[in-house]
Design a binder for these strands. Structure first.
Lengths: 217, 217
DNA sequence: AGATGATGTTCACAGTGTCCACATGACATC
DNA sequence: GATGTCATGTGGACACTGTGAACATCATCT
């Protein structure tokens, strides 16, 4: 009988979460492509095929990892937004603007400090709706989108942002900041230094906010 | 002796370009991940290792494919820009605005009609400067950026866009449109229908242009 | 206690990138 | 024209991946 050198019991206990945890670690340094099933099981001290009792295939594991990464992103945004509260100065509109900027800044900070996880969130195919899942029209909006939506709603209430088609402001703001992050990570904006990033990001946000405010109506 | 059923000569003639061509075909349907070295050699009717006489490794082949994809993107943008000329109506500023919109529209059209190639352009690591290459500060700006820059310069000359820090307008505009394309292809904006895409894209561009014009100075 | 279903293991296979040694052929030099 | 040299293509091998099928172990319910 092979001595149970590692695990006391034959069963792992909670392989699912263990695999996801390892997967996140691998995604953290290496991006979505580095999430390799066999390596995850190895780190969990388990045979390769054990993973298949918990995930249909590698893609499903990656999907689970993606969810974690997405939540981490949302958390980074939220944290940056809440940090604004401290210096509570200026009009409601000014505060809303500051929080909107913070949302973008948090997004970009996360992209730069956790490029692997950020790339994982937007890994090709990762967003494909699982065939068995319910059609996620808007019901299960992603966590990052919820953070943004909240801030945008405040901005609208404060009169900072125009009350146009619901959700459009979110998409515009998100696109702008996401595009910058993408171009920095995997585009020709390569290793832009941090201060340049912040400078451009601020310009970008200023342009978006001003543009939204002065929209021809 | 194995009859030379296929090639008349033992040598291929131009394996390098053949491999790139096949690589592009694979990237076209399947994205960067679908560019697999062995399959490329197979399609070229050559043994797997023949590729190594022309490319150091798979990444280098992918890099060559990426360059092709990038040029295709630039071409799509250019074509859309030139299509504007036809209806030459309105002031220079209006024309410049139309061309700017066209640039963005071309970008998005390409992303949606050639998602595989588009993803390949921004494949992870693909933009890493080849170790042997010259430092590409600005000298070898990518083809898409050159197209955009030209249009932006015209817009600046026409008074549509403000004469701020050189290149910043380009980055802002590029980020906005690229972000939208990314979110549609690999983000939660999933399979947004074409008309919705155009609607949002136009809003996005309107916001950017208006924002730039009304920038606090 | 015994059956049963969940969880891990083993064995196996196809497919990938890449290394090394060898074969082939184009071309320059005597 | 024979000969040597170098670029190009081949064959075999290895480590690695995802994944399927059959078997082993264990927790739990009756």
């Amino acid at each position: 009988m092979p001595a149970p050198t590692k695990r006391p019991s034959y069963h792992h206990g909670d392989l699912t979460t263990a695999l996801v945890r390892e997967g996140v670690a691998m995604a953290r340094d290496g991006g979505p492509g580095a999430v390799v099933l066999r390596e995850a099981t190895r780190r969990a001290g388990v045979s390769p095929n054990a993973a298949y009792r918990h995930f249909a295939d590698r893609d499903q594991l990656l999907g689970a990892v993606r969810v974690e990464a997405e939540q981490a992103l949302a958390q980074a945004m939220q944290a940056e937004v809440e940090a604004v509260e401290a210096g509570t100065r200026g009009s409601p509109a000014e505060l809303a603007a500051a929080r909107l900027r913070a949302t973008g800044a948090g997004y970009l900070r996360f992209a730069r400090s956790e490029p692997g996880l950020f790339r994982t969130v937007f890994a090709e195919g990762a967003h494909r709706t699982a065939p068995g899942a319910v059609a996620p029209s808007e019901s299960v909006a992603s966590a990052p989108l919820r953070v943004l939506s909240t801030v945008v709603a405040e901005g609208t209430a404060a009169g900072l942002l125009p009350p146009i088609q619901d959700g459009d402001v979110d998409v515009v703001a998100w696109s702008a900041v996401h595009g910058l992050a993408s171009l920095i990570l995997d585009g020709p904006l390569g290793g832009l230094p941090d201060d340049a990033t912040d400078r451009v990001a601020n310009l970008l946000l200023a342009v978006v906010v001003t543009g939204l405010a002065h929209l021809p109506r």
